[in-house]
């Protein structure tokens, strides 16, 4: 019986974030999003609906704040009192940041949201009891609760539409929490297929649905450990480190030729998503 299991493994189980004693190996999934490239077109969000069986909740439920878009595109206006936003709007794709020290994980009473050895914030639907504590404690508010049983809700998936559903992922019933998984089903398929070949995944072999569709390649996804990966190189070039709560850009004088930052990193969730600042021309 597993009391011994509990006593022996507990601390290890809860240390799967990049403290030095348990480094991720061979994978640490991460992203970078170039806000200068992102046009706010929403294609990524639609791709996520298509890939991850997200329900379209309809107008009424949307009005009640019950939308299920794992990827939402936020649109910000300049804060000053100018009459027109004459430097445009600012778009920000926001989804689960796959925090390394995820505030959502520690509070889940049943351990339904966990850290995986490859650095993902996992969500175990079967285990979730729907306490919503994880969402309460997520600083980014990117967790989406199944307020209704969408699979059986009228016009969400009429019989014809069920044929589109991705069989690689379940449909979530009522009372379950969900959120962006970095398209875990794609990662797992990829990992298993290369395991047979006795190697690790190469950069680009697994793409998330949002990355794949993005017309401006604003989203880069990959293995942060793999020095060949674009995401690794971008993080490195921007001198953004995972287990740090203040990056070079903000720390050093003259560090401002860098664009990489992470949102709310001062709270130390150690997000796995790096954003790169939008650029605006100074000459016009």
């Amino acid at each position: 019986m597993s009391v011994s299991n509990l006593l022996e493994n507990w601390s290890e189980f809860r240390h799967k974030h990049p403290v030095e004693d348990v480094p991720h190996d061979p994978y640490k999934w991460a992203m970078s999003i170039d806000l200068d490239a992102c046009t706010g077109c929403n294609a990524c969000s639609v791709a996520c609906y298509a890939e991850n069986n997200l329900p379209v909740v309809g107008k009424e439920k949307y009005a009640h704040g019950q939308a299920m878009h794992w990827m939402r595109i936020e649109r910000y206006w300049p804060e000053d009192d100018r009459e027109f936003p004459d430097q445009g709007a600012q778009f920000l794709p926001m989804m689960c940041q796959q925090c390394e020290a995820a505030p959502c994980e520690t509070v889940c009473p049943v351990g339904a949201t966990n850290h995986t050895p490859d650095g993902l914030n996992s969500q175990v639907y079967n285990r979730c009891i729907g306490s919503r504590y994880c969402s309460a404690n997520c600083p980014f508010k990117v967790r989406y609760f199944n307020w209704y049983d969408y699979p059986t809700t009228e016009n969400v998936w009429p019989a014809e539409m069920t044929q589109q559903l991705n069989p690689d992922i379940t449909l979530r019933g009522k009372g379950v929490m969900e959120k962006c998984t970095f398209c875990i089903q794609r990662i797992r398929v990829g990992q298993r297929s290369v395991k047979n070949e006795g190697r690790v995944l190469r950069d680009g072999e697994v793409q998330t649905a949002c990355q794949q569709v993005c017309p401006t390649n604003a989203i880069t996804f990959g293995n942060l450990i793999d020095t060949e990966s674009k995401v690794h190189q971008q993080w490195k070039a921007q001198r953004v480190e995972l287990a740090v709560d203040e990056q070079t850009k903000d720390k050093e004088e003259g560090g401002s030729d860098l664009r990489g930052y992470r949102i709310l990193e001062e709270l130390r969730p150690y997000p796995s998503v790096m954003y790169m600042e939008r650029v605006r021309e100074s000459a016009i």
Binding site: H69, R75, E79, S256, Y261, Y275, E277, R278, V279, E281
Partner: peptide, 30 residues
């Protein structure tokens, strides 16, 4: 709509950040 009650305001928090083009050199980036 998706936007919340404070509209497109970041309330002074560092969420979506902009930088002026003379500070960065995109051609140097990966």
């Amino acid at each position: 709509k998706d936007e919340g009650p404070v509209g497109g305001s970041q309330q002074g928090r560092k969420i979506a950040v902009s930088v002026s083009s003379d500070q960065v050199d995109l051609s140097e980036e990966v």
